[in-house]
């Protein structure tokens, strides 16, 4: 489903290269975990996948369902089924969360040639999804993410993911900032989305999340490259020994 080939990407503003020849393949139905030290380029990779124009791809390609997405803008990528749960969801004053959900869901439906959802149906879906994440529906009247606690913001990201039903989900440190109960709720939400025709990429620092969302593959990202891939035992090894061994091995 996702094939990243020799990807090089740099910061558009100053030309600093962050992703330096990265290769990664994630198949439909797979849950892939990406781990790696702070500053290794995990979030940058997620932004490049989503099409953020602060970064420029200089070499390589990203294939999604066999086709390059490099020429697509972020809205087209999202409408085609790519979803990024942000490490730091943005606060957008003045845009009510509910209104935002309505516009986003209907924008994606429109792009796929579907009719807009009627308000009662939309409300029903939002209520159901919010309920399953233990979110207070009253919160959705507030401006998007404004004043939400760290955990509330992460839950709001998962709420959007559930409602938008993407094919490729990228979760950037969705576990950080969550209390233990919330972690379970969010993991359940993600597990519910596991399906043979959906791929999920979980970026995390902690083995704990991977106990709830058991990955099919684990990849270590370091200095803009995947330096090691393995199965879930790799995460346990990292938890026990840190990154030093893996980094030395790759050097």
């Amino acid at each position: 489903m996702l094939e990243i080939k020799n990807l090089h990407a740099r910061i558009a503003e100053d030309g600093t290269e962050i992703i330096r020849g990265l290769n990664l393949t994630v198949k439909a139905g797979e849950v892939a975990a990406i781990m790696g030290p702070n500053g290794s380029g995990k979030s940058t990779l997620s932004y490049v996948l989503a099409g953020r124009d602060d970064y420029e791809v200089t070499e390589g390609d990203i294939l999604y369902n066999g086709e390059s997405i490099l020429e697509m803008d972020p809205a087209e990528r999202a409408a085609s089924g790519i979803f990024l749960a942000f490490q730091y969801p943005m606060e957008i004053p003045g845009v009510a969360t509910m209104e935002f959900l309505k516009v986003a869901m209907n924008a994606q439906r429109k792009a796929r040639g579907e009719e807009p959802l009627k308000i009662p149906e939309l409300l029903k879906r939002v209520k159901e999804a919010a309920g399953s994440l233990n979110m207070d529906i009253a919160m959705l009247k507030r401006p998007l993410n404004v004043g939400f606690s760290g955990g509330e913001k992460k839950r709001a990201e998962i709420l959007q993911m559930k409602l938008l039903e993407p094919q490729l989900c990228v979760l950037d440190e969705t576990d950080s900032g969550l209390d233990i109960d919330a972690l379970k709720i969010v993991a359940d939400g993600v597990n519910a989305l596991r399906s043979p025709d959906r791929a999920i990429v979980v970026i995390t620092h902690y083995q704990r999340l991977l106990e709830y969302i058991v990955p099919d593959s684990v990849h270590v990202l370091y200095r803009g490259q995947v330096i090691k891939s393995g199965d879930k035992s790799l995460a346990l090894e990292l938890e026990a020994n840190g990154y030093a061994g893996v980094i030395d091995e790759a050097a």
Partner: peptide, 19 residues
Amino acid sequence: YLKARGIDEKTARGLLVKA
């Protein structure tokens, strides 16, 4: 952020202006 949720440029700008 808005575009990453599938909202096209024009609509996204409209939302932010209204906000």
